[in-house]
Design a binder for these strands. Structure first.
Lengths: 162, 162
DNA sequence: ATTGTGAAAGAATTTTATTCTATCTGTTTA
DNA sequence: TAAACAGATAGAATAAAATTCTTTCACAAT
């Protein structure tokens, strides 16, 4: 059996790991002490398990979610984009532009009529219009752009394990 | 001038608040001490500012993001749904069903041809097919359902202030 | 000028994280 | 079969951080 590299120690997640992840998903600022109590372990193994899951990349990031309306980002728009040209280089240029636009909080490559789906936030319709016309549409190689407005958020979670 | 209720103290966010939010958005487990150093304040006012933003709901939640592929949720699908009937009650029933489905991590009300846009995660195509046919399509009052598959994630952030 | 208010610093205290050592359990190896 | 080993854990010791309290300062209102 080949010896495993000391990095990327690929074990599977056991029941306790999943319990810890559940707790962290709900509240990234929960203390290790509190987790330990809930999973019936001492702080040491909990600490160690979290460290390992961070190292393995199971845990990607601890983030804080804000209320969009309260930080002047009350408008959300889904934006579909197709490129005129689909060469690798053309695609990479587009991606680079998108990465630099703070208004774009999500960009997915999708199947179907369009190439990309963007989630864009803005303060209001004027701000979005400005973004659309003066920044998004100015990216070279952009083909079709179609905006769908989000009227309400019914559900929004990041809970991948349960 | 009317006296303000002691709850919901609605002040505006100053530059320092925004700096603190930026740091917390990137890393929800950053220590108050470290924030304090970066914004050139002592821990006391930082602590107080965070508490206030939590209370006001500017800060919605501290969450941990996981790597979908590493927790057996490697497939992401965008799913468009229209209802047959648009009465308030029919809508509420649908919403209730959606809330209970862990595979649905996002549900938005949108303008255009469809009523809702869902983001669904699953382990693989088989699991998604099962979800689609046996659970999603079984909700009463469902009209059209259209699935768009996510081939890649170009960008995914939660940074609303920058 | 005086009072009041809000924000902040700094010290004191409490709580938590982190590290270290020892133990326990189950498995491999001689 | 017994000894050696590895992995996970508990518990204690230490280091670091959070939280609370008191005091000070700056500015606005009276």
């Amino acid at each position: 059996m080949p010896k495993r590299s000391s990095k990327e120690e690929s074990t599977t997640l056991d029941k306790t790991d999943l319990e810890i992840l559940q707790l962290l998903q709900h509240n990234a600022r929960i203390t290790i002490k509190e987790i330990a109590e809930k999973v019936h372990l001492s702080t040491t193994p909990v600490h160690e398990r979290i460290r390992r899951m961070e190292e393995r990349g199971v845990i990607r990031q601890y983030v804080t979610l804000l209320d969009g309306a309260k930080v002047k980002k009350g408008l959300m728009v889904i934006c579909y984009i197709s490129l005129r040209q689909h060469s690798k280089m053309a695609g990479n240029k587009f991606i680079k532009s998108i990465q630099e636009m703070n208004e774009v909080i999500e960009c997915l490559t999708i199947s179907g009529e369009f190439d990309f789906m963007l989630k864009v936030v803005a303060e209001n319709m004027d701000a979005y219009y400005d973004f659309h016309v003066n920044r998004l549409s100015q990216i070279e190689n952009i083909g079709n752009v179609q905006s769908v407005f989000v009227m309400g958020v019914i559900k929004q979670t990041h809970q991948l394990v349960w």
